[in-house]
């Protein structure tokens, strides 16, 4: 995986030494020096080999642009990304599951139809446009919330300040995911509601509310976990668009910058990090299935 990423990026046109020199038509001797220092003059298999060996030891190399280890840059941006992702995921899970269960309970009714249409519309909104609209309305027109960044430049005021900056990006981010969760929750809960054990529970006189929340929903959680963990894997780098609109200092923005500046080691490091996150999310999903579904614990 790491090797594939590295080779793919190395094949791209453009001379890394040129970028590093920072100007077109730089002194040839200077370029040669850079190539030697960065070992760009070595054959590709050698470069790939040394990269993979170092990456296995947690060394992702040195950023060409930022002039510091890739790992440090990633770690520096990580908190902002995690904050946005965690808030977004929590919001969307809360909103999505609630609306999904309501829709399932009122299957075929007006409320169900309304939630269905709303979620489809929300799912179809391009995140960057939604972000723009929110900025135009709440930041530019009403001056309620800041338009971008994570802290105020003039008076960084602690938690309240960060939360105020977080509201718009987190809302933008979670609407789309919430729409997806609504749909999955509705389908799964509706399916569970026609099962025999639900009929049994109802026949025993269990209140409808309890049937819904204690009998049907737990059995519908599996697909919801699949969606959420599936998203968790791509969430940090997948936030490129949201982070760009809101100038949020997270990993998505770092990835975008490193693409534009052809910072190969940074890009490779980020892709590797992102891929390992996907793997972690898959493991987490398996663990959660076991916690949520006792039947899978037997084997």
């Amino acid at each position: 995986m790491a090797a594939a990423t590295f080779v793919l990026i190395s094949l791209a046109p453009g001379d890394t030494a040129q970028v590093f020199a920072g100007q077109q038509g730089a002194d040839p001797e200077y370029l040669a020096l850079i190539r030697e220092r960065l070992q760009l003059d070595r054959p590709l298999p050698y470069q790939v080999g040394s990269y993979v060996r170092a990456a296995a030891q947690g060394d992702l190399g040195f950023s060409l642009i930022q002039g510091r280890p890739v790992r440090d840059s990633i770690l520096a941006r990580l908190p902002a990304s995690v904050l946005l992702a965690a808030t977004g995921l929590a919001l969307s899970a809360l909103l999505g599951i609630t609306l999904g269960v309501i829709a399932a309970a009122r299957r075929g009714g007006v409320v169900d139809a309304a939630i269905g249409v709303l979620s489809l519309v929300a799912y179809s909104l391009p995140v960057f446009w939604l972000g723009q609209l929110l900025v135009a309305l709440f930041a530019v027109r009403l001056h309620w919330l800041p338009a971008g960044g994570m802290r105020s430049a003039d008076e960084p005021g602690g938690i309240v300040d960060v939360v105020r900056h977080l509201v718009l990006p987190a809302t933008t981010f979670s609407l789309l995911l919430a729409a997806l969760i609504v749909r999955v929750t509705r389908t799964a809960t509706s399916e569970a509601l026609v099962e025999d054990y639900v009929r049994t529970a109802r026949a025993k006189g269990v209140p409808e509310r309890r049937v819904l929340l204690r009998h049907a929903l737990p059995n519908a959680l599996r697909p919801i976990v699949t969606v959420l963990t599936g998203y968790l894997g791509i969430v940090l780098t997948g936030a490129v668009l949201v982070e760009t609109v809101f100038v949020w200092p997270g990993l998505g923005r770092l990835l975008y910058d490193s693409v534009l500046s052809r910072d190969t080691p940074m890009l490779a490091g980020l892709l590797l990090f992102s891929a390992s996150l996907v793997v972690t999310a898959n493991i987490l999903a398996d663990v959660l299935y076991r916690v949520l579904d006792p039947r899978t614990r037997l084997r």
């Binding site: 995986m1 046109p13 997948g238 490129v240 693409v259 534009l260 992102s274 891929a275 996907v278 793997v279």
Partner: peptide, 17 residues
Amino acid sequence: TLVVPRFLIALVAAAFF
């Protein structure tokens, strides 16, 4: 293809080529 998000591949390809 499941490990690397589609949008990322497209972004890198479009920016480099």
